[in-house]
Design a binder for these strands. Structure first.
Lengths: 239, 239
DNA sequence: TTTTATTTTTAGGCAAGACTAAATCTTTGT
DNA sequence: ACAAAGATTTAGTCTTGCCTAAAAATAAAA
């Protein structure tokens, strides 16, 4: 029996599961409309949450009973409308906090993830509002990830592509750094490859992507080239 | 067996208990040196934590096993040196957050407590440092409560007295508002009775204290007069 | 199609931290 | 001094969220 008029506050774990179902169920471009998501496997959730698959099954049953996910045994899980809203709310908290830590408190953009991960579950709506206000209601966080609005709409997407999928010679701006791995973040930050940075793809080789950033040339391993999303120079315009 | 080389991170509940043992064990003037505290009863902790006495007993045993409190059955509890340090650290977090919410994010001084209560357990040392830096390493929070330094020293105490204990005619400045009750805070805020405000005690009556604030006169109920700590005008100097 | 490998679920447990009810200590009143 | 009252502790449960091991379902391969 679904409890759609759900006003029981969710636990931290529950919120985290919902967030991950959204993230894993969306393409690499980041979360979009609920209809565009695909079901998520128990295993992928277990990996993401650093937890055993059996634990995931247990939690999914609870969330299904709350009407927050649609869960069919052996068949993966997807969010309901209600679960989707919760997930977006958590994402909004996370990304606003990242932006605030970066802009207001001088955190490096590569340092903000861990702190936001803890805080996202513990701030009030008032806090959310005040930092959003202070920041001027930003549409993207320091990693280039979209921030849902107060009414949970996502900002319009721009046509970005993975560095690893570009043709040689192409120039563009880093639009998004889609990893949370601390080592990767540190390296990319060290190379100046943060959102907004200009780069040119020299060529794709077996080991990864040879690029030029300012006057420097680097060979970026495949694993990193895949998480760097690039906005093409002179690419498609929308207006 | 005490585990004095304690580096197991404490739970939120454990930190809260330690904080309350410190607060309840200190006089109304707020926490001072560990030697000046008195043992705290199970009942008073239960009241403060909104929990049944049996639950308190259970937790105290755990904390005693960790070497954070000295606990003798039926006899109350006090902090050990290690527990005292944890309690001060939590208090520092709490009060720095209150100050930051007030000064940086425009929270009213009467609104900050609830938010700080949640956040105090979830911020990193880096976060603590950055907001302390931003604030200029303040010695007191918006309620006038002392903030332990990064090395956990308490700022020198000033000779304040409860409004309810003053003689009529006396003038002074509000030094501290020692309540966390939201209704009381709202009322005091409404009357402009925040730390720094000047007032004069007209007379003590059975129902409370008749005072003058600016051009207004109020009869402040006993319960409120007891939580208002006043710094006497032209009072004892220390230099 | 049948076997094998992989994924997922079930079953049973554990640790925190709360609760209730019952037992036991301490204090207090006379 | 002693009994009643009040405070505290013990004993036994419950819920949450995780675990491991074993069973079952699905998917892949022969």
């Amino acid at each position: 029996m679904h409890k759609l008029t759900n006003r029981t506050p969710l636990s931290e774990a529950q919120e985290d599961y919902l967030k991950q179902v959204l993230l894993l169920g969306s393409g690499g471009e980041g979360p979009g409309r609920l209809e565009d998501t695909h079901p998520v496997s128990t295993q992928s959730l277990a990996d993401q949450m650093q937890v055993k698959p059996a634990s995931v099954t247990g939690m999914l049953k609870k969330l299904a009973a709350l009407g927050l996910v649609e869960y069919e045994a052996y068949r993966g899980v997807r969010l309901t409308e209600a679960g989707y809203r919760v997930a977006l709310e958590v994402l909004r908290h996370h990304r606003l906090i990242e932006a605030y830590l970066h802009e207001a408190l001088g955190y490096g953009w590569e340092e903000v993830h861990a702190e936001a991960e803890k805080l996202e579950h513990h701030i009030s709506e008032a806090f959310e509002e005040r930092i959003a206000e202070w920041l001027g209601h930003p549409s993207h966080d320091p990693h280039g990830d979209a921030i849902p609005s107060a009414t949970l709409e996502l900002p319009p997407t721009t046509p970005n592509r993975r560095l690893s999928a570009l043709e040689h010679g192409v120039r563009g701006l880093v639009a998004r750094v889609a990893t949370q791995d601390q080592d990767s973040l540190n390296l990319l930050a060290h190379l100046g490859l943060k959102p907004g940075a200009a780069l040119q793809l020299l060529e794709q080789v077996a080991e990864g992507s040879r690029i030029q950033v300012g006057k420097e040339r680097y060979l970026l391993p495949m694993s990193l080239a895949q998480v760097l999303w690039v906005h093409l120079e002179g690419g498609p315009h929308d207006g």
